[in-house]
Design a protein around this nucleic acid. Sequence first.
DNA 1: ACCCGCCTGTGTACATTGTACGCGCCAAGA
DNA 2: TCTTGGCGCGTACAATGTACACAGGCGGGT
Lengths: 223, 223
Amino acid sequence: MSTTAMKDEDPRPALSRQRVVQAAIQHADSAGLDGLTMRKVAEMLQAAPMSLYRHVSNRDDLIDAMIDVLFGEIALPLGSAHWKTAMRDRALSLRDLLARHRWAIGLMESRRRPGPANLRHHDAVIGKLRSAGFDVEMVAHAYSVLDGYIYGFALTRMSIPFDTTDEMAAMAQDMFEPWPANDYPNLAEFVTDHVMKPGYDYREEFEYGLDLILNGLEEALAG
Amino acid sequence: MSTTAMKDEDPRPALSRQRVVQAAIQHADSAGLDGLTMRKVAEMLQAAPMSLYRHVSNRDDLIDAMIDVLFGEIALPLGSAHWKTAMRDRALSLRDLLARHRWAIGLMESRRRPGPANLRHHDAVIGKLRSAGFDVEMVAHAYSVLDGYIYGFALTRMSIPFDTTDEMAAMAQDMFEPWPANDYPNLAEFVTDHVMKPGYDYREEFEYGLDLILNGLEEALAG
DNA sequence: ACCCGCCTGTGTACATTGTACGCGCCAAGA
DNA sequence: TCTTGGCGCGTACAATGTACACAGGCGGGT
């Protein structure tokens, strides 16, 4: 059916901006932002490095496009739900996104050329808050503290993956090993008594702070 | 007096790990992390690039050392002040530090080999909270939400410098320009009515969220 | 049918970067 | 005086982003 090939299987479908961006996201997910090289992305698509530049003007443009795809994946607060549950769902959705795409944490909020999905997302969030009774100033407060917390949590707690408690313990061991024991008694107590406990899950930790902030905003809105 | 030079002025004092790290910090402050190349640092010290490697094992080791110097600059909560004012001062100190050294925002909390100043800082913060009556679990909650917010605010609000309202307006113009007007009404209202107002200062914004969180923690501690 | 111009994929080439390797120098100890 | 160890450095190489020019094919106008 294709105009370019009548054969049953085309081993190399045509390049396109979308395919380049998708491949780049997939590679960044597994290799990180440093591992994201034009040559690797080209290899994934079985193309020559320079071919990418027909669809992407340079590496920065590629990253801009990748980020906008991610913004499109965040759940938008569009329904008629209460602002608090809408913001909560949106926060969890964004946190999950940042967990899937750790390389994006420092990039989502610093784009100089935000894409349409980016703008649409912010527009929807602001709209939800405005229609819930937040005046413009309160929207600024709420957005600032919520996004600050969400991105900051991702940055500080999810930047290194702890899949098992054992990995965690090993890492803690490595961190303390070069230094004399008992130099940091409070830190040592904290690590042994809390972080290394089997039940530790950063998901619960995230929701504790999130609810603390949402409750604070609710009080401020009412007061 | 020096054993290496009797002349009045030595145009090129000896290299040392400290001098290399200081020069690197200074350069990163003005050129960012991408601008931080071994060759530039060497140039600042009037040395050859490879000379740095006698004092720093590689670029990552250099960055580790730079970060630990920064941790040493954060005001420690050591006095007998109330935990709330101690945490507030520490937060403001950390925010100012991140404003002075924007390149460090993504790095402070992701070091695999934390230096002594890093560990000492965390130890002091945890100690302050513990002695104020926080149990280990509440320390985890408090530290997580506070640091999340502080680093996240730095990441989301200070990643691009807005020194004047005019620059701000120009940037907003650039961001909207490629897209059809009225596609994002809530966002447009927000930008014109709030962000571009002359009095906008992210410092006040930071303290609003900070106090909201501190008050929430105080309630949780009492309840 | 033919040609012409554009669009896409590509090969080559170069500047920039981190850093391995080994040489020379100089001071301090034997 | 001879040796040794550390320090500064010149050279070299691999990885990376990307400028430039070229080829092949497809479509539209004649």
